[in-house]
Design a protein around this nucleic acid. Structure first.
Length: 424
RNA sequence: GGAGAGUUGGCAGAGUGGUCGAAUGCGGUGGUCUUGAAAACCAUUGACGGUUGAUCCCGUCCGGGGGUUCGAAUCCCUCACUCUCCGCCA
């Protein structure tokens, strides 16, 4: 949520910045609503004040045994006025809040203009795409050739966009998770955390997935409004909803492995082949809640932590600054890491690192407080470190050998109990 | 699934219709004392919003929502959550 004060003070400037994200903000309508809100609020509060005074009078009069019926009659009229005003005020306030809840975060000034992926800018590339002396296969062919990857059975059991892994491939998948968790806890100072994979709607509102993006989520058919998590970001960040951290607790750094569930509504026909876009996938997520003065530094660090995984696995990648139009709803700035996929002859997203500033924190009232002064909003950040399924794709394709076997990356050999190659 | 007890400020915990935004303790902050620190003692200390140059001031908030009343932390309804006991079960 944006700061309501910022909107009131300079709506034109906010409107200009939101346009970078492709969001049209009706300033005139906002100003008119704000003016009415202000008038209604002042009126309502004045009536409340009078009511409180009169009530006290009645109490005193009664204590002294005086007649109170005439005072009560006066209160009846007042109460009716108050009720009307209050209803108008509440209604308008709700309307404003709903509007505010649908407004995206303001992009940081360093975010390039643009309305699609094509305008994202390359920050740097790392590693050289390997040249193969044979015709490369994609991960689907490789996995099915090894008889360790099975989309057909998954489609039978559930439907499209699910998969089954077996044997050493399932093991490699699990090894990746262990490897990533170990790196982030041991080398990067994150606390490992295990969380529910089902969340309520308040949590989804906190991170900004609701009210606008409900169609991307799987909702459970229960009496409670429960959803499967689209990412661990939701439960992990919401740990601090309605909480006040002390200055000593900052920065708060969590790493969390979880499955992620996405409906992928609106992406029919895209990436239908293989593991790239699944309804269910595993991710190791990095989440930080930090002092507002340090969030850009934390952002750089968090991004480097995700990159460290790719580097340790010797997977070529590039990092991209997302342009305004490609930027997520809650994010002020996002850097995507894209891994090289030889079979697609292109880079594909494998991690997305974002700084939300106080946008999520305001929605979920996640605050911190020093020894002096008032509680202040935290800044929240997160990034994939990494998307496990896509990392597996990258390893299969980048480490494939002429006979269709897969070399196990050196960093993972210990996690595979010494296995150096996956073959039939 | 059955029976019962709870949910109050950063934390613990009083408060059952009218100066209660709320005793008290802990914690925080400032001070006295001390060479310094600790202890002790004194003072101070909720959040959000409106208004303001800033105070003052005003409003809202005692799990969420609704109701009764001139007036609700306190009474009623409802929902959520927590805990205890019994039953069942990974």
């Amino acid at each position: 949520m944006l700061d309501p004060k910022l909107l009131r003070n300079d709506p034109e400037r906010v409107a200009g910045k939101l346009l970078i994200k492709g969001y049209v903000f009706d300033v005139a309508k906002f100003k008119a609503m704000e003016e009415r809100r202000k008038a209604l609020q002042i009126d309502t509060q004045e009536l409340q004040s009078i009511r409180n005074q009169k009530s006290k009078q009645i109490g005193q009069a009664k204590a002294q045994g005086q007649e109170i019926e005439s005072l009560k009659a006066e209160m009846d009229r007042l109460a009716q006025d108050l009720k009307d005003k209050q209803q108008q005020f509440d209604g308008l306030q709700e309307e404003l809040n709903n509007w505010l809840a649908e407004m995206p975060n303001i992009p940081h000034e360093s975010v390039p203009a643009g309305d699609s992926e094509a305008q994202n800018t390359v920050i740097h590339t790392w590693g050289e795409p390997k040249s193969f002396a044979f015709e490369v296969k994609d991960h689907v062919d490789l996995g099915e050739h090894l008889q360790l990857l099975d989309f057909e059975s998954a489609a039978k059991i559930t439907g499209s966009r699910f998969t089954i892994m077996q044997g050493q491939l399932a093991q490699l998948h699990r090894a990746l998770i262990q490897f990533m968790l170990d790196m982030h806890t041991r080398a990067h100072g994150y606390t490992e955390i295990y969380v529910p994979y089902i969340v309520n709607s308040d949590s989804l509102r906190g991170t900004g997935n609701l009210p606008k993006f409900g169609e991307d989520l799987f909702q459970l058919k229960t009496d409670s409004e429960y959803y499967l998590i689209p990412t661990a970001e939701v439960p992990v960040t919401n740990m601090w909803r309605d909480q006040i951290a002390s200055a000593e607790q900052l920065p708060i750094k969590y790493v969390c492995h979880s499955p992620c569930f996405r409906s992928e509504a609106g992406s029919y026909g895209r990436d239908t082949r293989g593991l790239i876009r699944q309804h269910q996938f595993e991710k190791v997520e990095l989440v930080q809640l930090v002092h507002p003065d340090h969030s850009w530094q934390a952002f750089a660090e968090l991004t480097s932590h995700a990159e460290a995984v790719l580097q340790a696995l010797a997977l070529p990648y590039r990092s991209m600054t997302l342009c305004g139009g490609d930027l997520g709803f809650s994010s002020a700035k996002t850097i995507d890491l894209e891994v090289w996929l030889p079979a697609q002859d292109t880079y594909r997203e494998i991690s997305s690192c974002s700084n939300f500033l106080d946008f999520q924190a305001r929605r979920m009232k996640a605050r911190w407080k020093g020894h002096e002064g008032k509680p202040q909003l935290l800044h929240t950040l997160n990034g994939s470190g990494l998307a496990v399924g896509r990392t597996l794709v990258a390893i299969l394709e980048n480490y494939q050998q002429a006979d269709g076997s897969i070399e196990v990356p050196k960093a993972l050999v210990n996690y595979m109990h010494g296995t150096t190659e996956i073959s039939i």
